[in-house]
Write a protein that binds this DNA or RNA. Structure first.
Ligand code: MN
Ligand code: MN
Ligand code: MN
Ligand code: MN
Lengths: 219, 219
DNA sequence: GTTATTTGTTAGATCAATCTAACTTTATAA
DNA sequence: TTATAAAGTTAGATTGATCTAACAAATAAC
């Protein structure tokens, strides 16, 4: 394993490469709130670990090994979040900070035991997939709520943003994973969508919100 | 808070001062497996934190503030051990290493929740007292089994040594906390004691073992 | 009460992780 | 296509945690 610092860099690298494919040093630096030279020097260490390929002035590419190591850290993070919510009664907006620390604990048994107690969950409290011991995840066929058409009925299955503020916003609207949403109006003007669900029959959600809500079409 | 490193130093300092009163730099260094100069320089930082009083060439003394901070780390360590055993099914010999890492997690809520789930336990799986949120611990009136007289009946209540090897030795003899022991013989020669308990009716325990078994006299 | 041993201190080096300042390369815009 | 801006690199400094080597003080042995 690397240090906690290196693990955090690798995780950021992994997420960026998942979203964007190619990663720049500056993206990494801003994600981690460090200076560009700091990220630059760390990138060289990660190259030495075989986690990414680094060539001067070229975009960074994560290696299969890097992906493997990253997925094990993400596994620990997401199992922790799930454990905190399911076994310890924490709310979904308060678990990330704790998991950010616990994910660095070096003990297979600890996380495997969490996994077992939780019944080998496939998704974390925010709907993100939990890699299994081999790094494999279950891929659902999700789309953004913002891409749904009027009249569609969908299940809220994951969030592509799990910021505390956003989670608290969702709480305030009683929006949680598993809720069935019906698109009852869509504003071409600003991309906002009006949905009905549970005992909310006319909730207007902004484009920004709808972009972060990942839903599954009912069939 | 200090760094993880500093926290580990403080814990060592606390334990040594509990056992010996005065602490030397070399004891600290050997406890932590670092060189004497390393411990020496760290001691100056701890002095700067107000955790101990340092004067050149004089023994170290922990301050009330140092004790307070130390007891909060020990609280986190012992709650974690208890949680691992009681809630996650770990055995008492496998929890220390994990707790050694988890104790550095910075989250009151995390440990308070453990505490609550466990029902505010007063002792950890090895019988060591768990400090409450104010650093207070319950003090039992324990003596070493090696100090018991023939014929006495006592309850095994704590261990003054929790090394893995020792715990595995105890497992092999079905010795666990709460077991009632009757001293049926005592060898003046080597200090070994023969005890009977549960369905063991003649178990010989060496002086070394008996020194690590803390028992409570029945009354 | 000297001498020898142990213990403690200082100095100086190294490595990880960080920064700022200066410079270079690549990308963008005029 | 050259000028400007953005991104990336290098150099050099800092801080925390560690080491070894050299020296000083305190303690123990004789
Ligand atoms: Mn998270
Ligand atoms: Mn982290
Ligand atoms: Mn322990
Ligand atoms: Mn520790």
């Amino acid at each position: 394993m690397g240090s906690q610092t290196e693990e955090n860099y690798l995780k950021a690298l992994y997420k960026l490469s998942d979203e964007e494919g190619k990663i720049s040093v500056s993206e990494l630096s801003s994600t981690l709130n460090v200076s560009i030279p700091t990220a630059n020097s760390m990138v060289k260490k990660m190259d030495a670990h075989g986690w990414l390929r680094y060539e001067k002035y070229r975009p960074l590419t994560i290696t299969p090994k890097g992906k493997q190591v990253a997925s094990m850290i993400i596994r620990k993070h997401r199992l922790t979040e799930m454990f905190l919510v399911e076994q310890m009664g924490f709310s979904w907006e308060s678990v990330h900070e704790i998991a950010e620390q616990v994910e660095h604990v070096n003990s297979e048994a600890f996380f495997d035991r969490m996994d077992e107690i939780l019944g080998f969950p496939k998704f974390d409290p925010h709907g993100s997939p939990i890699p299994d011991k081999n790094g494999k995840t279950e891929q659902l066929d999700l789309i953004k709520l913002s891409e749904c058409k009027m009249g569609e009925i969908v299940t809220l299955s994951a969030l592509s943003n799990s910021d505390k503020n956003f989670l608290e916003y969702l709480n305030s609207r009683s929006l949680s994973l598993g809720v069935q949403l019906k698109v009852i109006a869509k504003e071409a003007f600003d991309g906002s969508i009006t949905v009905s669900y549970s005992n909310h029959d006319k909730e207007v959600l902004s484009k920004k919100v709808c972009d972060s809500l990942m839903v599954e079409k009912l069939r």
